[in-house]
Design a protein around this nucleic acid. Structure first.
Length: 600
RNA sequence: GCCCCCGUAGCUCAAUGGACAGAGCAUCUGCCUUCUAAGCAGAGGGUUGGGAGUUCGAUCCUCUCCGGGGGCACCA
């Protein structure tokens, strides 16, 4: 927001160094820490080190030399429009703005741009974010929620940063797990169907667990039990075979049960305010991927070992000319001619590049699949797609439970819907006593917003690569560094504003408190935080920022009276400031996929 | 055997080459007749797993050791 001044100062510094033959290092600007004023700073340590290496100038230690340079630079800068003063401290050059000017500039820029404040300049590249890839015929658990929230927030960030953005879901709707559910349904539950989208989805998970129990080899089986189990297994295999052969009855059963799962998935995505642009299904890339295998064999990228009773493989390291083991060798077609996850990912990537013209392709997938995805990217490179360089695996640590890893197969999962319901329940019990002024018909809706805010923020406030041991009390905490804390800042700002009339403009030529300075500084940083979070593919950056912003507002709220101020001029300025703060909090929360209620 | 990730306050986590390593939770002390206390102000708590190196400067980069987790051809 203040690039103009920064650039001007930078030019002057460069001129000075050139004129004095100083080997200036690249200037890295940052906000000044520990100050009650706003400004930007850079250090001269690297420059001093450069000088020392060249044996030029005084033979002082680097820190002192940096300070010497900073003082010289300061002496040469003279006065710059909008700059109040400049100081040289501990090797740093600190440039301070004229407080009233910068305050009104930040506030007015926020208010004039509104919900667009912080949006980055349009960029030429198209980004696709692939997330929400649960298997059908199970239910959506809290691990899927982490994936979906991370993906959605990343999509919002890159979109707001200026990239054309495509959201893609990729449910796994085939494979042995799917067949297992169909098998037990057909055998024991045919014709049944619970009412309710979530109930039906969760019921499929119950069937899956029961089926796995029936099919699992047990210790000390009697011969009868063994025979029974093997008979079940044969039935399941037979169903898989029929599915593969396109048997109409089996396909119909598949379509119906698959749709039950997808309905639940769409409902969950709706609850999370996620709107997919594209739906890819594993079943739809299965056939195309077989064609790709042939192409890769023809191009001498893949080796066909089927004539010798083997599979079709890609010796990735060898084909890339690597001598050290890195990507290893992987199979792209089983010896029986069926495809693998990797095969389908290759087919899907081709669609992404050719049909959707994706420049940057982001995969939000569990970190345990890291090698798999690196292999896929390497094969895409061998295949000749330059976009492979901009394929990015956003790996995240898996979500486990205090009692161990989640397992759909064993039914040891925490479902998203369960946590959601519990979240709403807890909010309602809290705000029954705290929020007397909320209209009864609003309560449920606001409870959903707050409850989800807590859950979503708890998933975003940990860096991607960290595993999460899911603790519902932590995830649904409303105190401290949480979603509701940030939402509460929005609510309090709103509360002040609704009691005041409209204020159209204001000046900040009074002595600002340190809380006002801090709040304005936080607001001014929003646009660059958007860019940073998007470029680094790190939702955490925005999550941290939103908290810092809300924290600055809460401090301001307590220390600085707005409506209880007799000076009309100061009151108006502060009302504008509160309106701006409310806007930035709302913008930040929106990027985090968290609602901004007006009351709570 | 090879590869990846992690180790920071009692606990959960920030900070990726620069100013005094920061938050939350928990503990303790204050603050609601004042714009919503889901809040604010403050206190205690650290040889950043050990060692070596690179650098003017290392939580951050390199090496090594220790400890934890994950992954390595026909699962996804």
């Amino acid at each position: 927001m203040f690039q103009k001044e920064q650039q001007l100062i930078e030019e002057k510094v460069k001129e000075f160094c050139k004129a004095n033959d100083i080997a200036l290092a690249e200037l890295k600007w940052q906000p000044i820490p520990f100050s009650g004023e706003w400004g930007f700073a850079t250090s001269f340590f690297q420059t001093a080190a450069n000088e020392a290496k060249l044996g030029k100038g005084s033979k002082l230690p680097v820190p002192q030399k940096a300070q010497e340079i900073a003082e010289h630079v300061k002496g040469q800068l003279g006065s710059v429009a909008g700059i109040s003063h400049i100081e040289a401290v501990k090797g740093y050059l600190n440039v301070y703005f004229k407080t009233s000017e910068y305050a009104s500039r930040v506030v007015e820029e926020v208010l004039s741009n509104g919900i667009e404040f912080g949006r980055g300049a349009a960029k030429t590249e198209t980004v696709m974010v692939e997330y929400a890839q649960p298997n059908t015929h199970h239910s959506f658990h809290i691990g899927h929620a982490r994936n979906t929230i991370l993906g959605e927030v990343l999509a919002r960030l890159v979109e707001f940063a200026g990239y054309k953005t495509i959201r893609a879901s990729y449910p796994g709707d085939l494979g042995l797990g799917v067949i297992t559910v169909m098998w037990i349904y057909d055998k024991l539950y045919k014709g049944q169907e619970p009412a309710g989208v979530h109930e039906r989805g969760q019921w499929l998970l119950k069937l899956y667990v029961e089926a796995n129990q029936l099919l699992e080899k047990k210790e000390n089986e009697t011969p009868e039990q063994t025979a029974q189990r093997e008979a079940y297994e044969a039935e399941r295999r037979e169903m898989y075979r029929k599915w593969d052969a396109g048997d109409e009855a089996v396909r119909e059963l598949w379509r119906v049960t698959r749709e039950w799962s997808l309905e639940e998935l769409r409902e969950v995505l709706h609850m999370l305010d996620v709107n997919m642009d594209v739906w890819f299904y594993e079943s739809e890339v299965d056939e195309p991927s077989k064609v790709i295998v042939e192409e890769l064999i023809t191009k001498n990228i893949a080796d066909d070992e089927r004539p010798n009773g083997g599979a079709v493989i890609v010796k990735i390291d060898e084909k890339l000319g690597l001598t050290k083991e890195k990507y290893r060798t992987n199979v792209i077609l089983r010896r029986d001619g069926t495809t693998l996850y990797l095969t389908k990912d290759l087919a899907l990537a081709k669609v992404k590049f050719e049909q959707y013209h994706v420049d940057r392709s982001i995969y939000v997938v569990d970190v345990r699949q890291s090698l798999h995805l690196q292999q896929a990217f390497a094969i895409l490179k061998l295949w000749g797609f330059p976009q492979s360089e901009k394929c990015y695996h956003l790996g995240y640590g898996f979500v486990s439970l205090p009692e161990g890893a989640m397992s759909s197969r064993k039914g040891r999962v925490v479902l998203f819907k369960e946590v959601y319901d519990e979240a709403v329940k807890r909010v309602l019990s809290v705000n029954a006593e705290k929020s007397v002024e909320i209209a009864p018909e609003e309560r449920e809706k606001i409870a959903q917003q707050i409850g989800l805010g807590a859950l979503v923020y708890s998933m975003l406030s940990v860096d991607n690569n960290k595993d999460i041991v899911f603790d519902i009390n932590e995830a649904l905490s409303f105190d401290g560094r949480t979603g509701p804390y940030i939402q509460n800042a929005h609510v309090r700002a709103n509360s002040i504003l609704k009691k005041a009339g409209n204020v159209t403009n204001a000046t900040f030529d009074y002595e600002l408190t340190k809380q006002e300075i801090e709040l304005i500084e936080q607001m001014s940083q929003f646009p660059q935080k958007v860019q940073q979070a998007a470029e680094e593919y790190r939702p955490l950056v925005m999550a941290m920022y939103a908290y810092d912003l809300a924290n600055a507002f809460h401090s301001f709220y307590h220390a600085v009276p707005v409506l209880q101020n007799d000076d009309e001029k100061v009151k108006n300025a502060r009302l504008r400031l509160v309106a701006a703060a409310k806007q930035v909090v709302a913008n930040a929360l929106r990027l985090l996929d968290i609602q901004s209620p007006d009351v709570m």
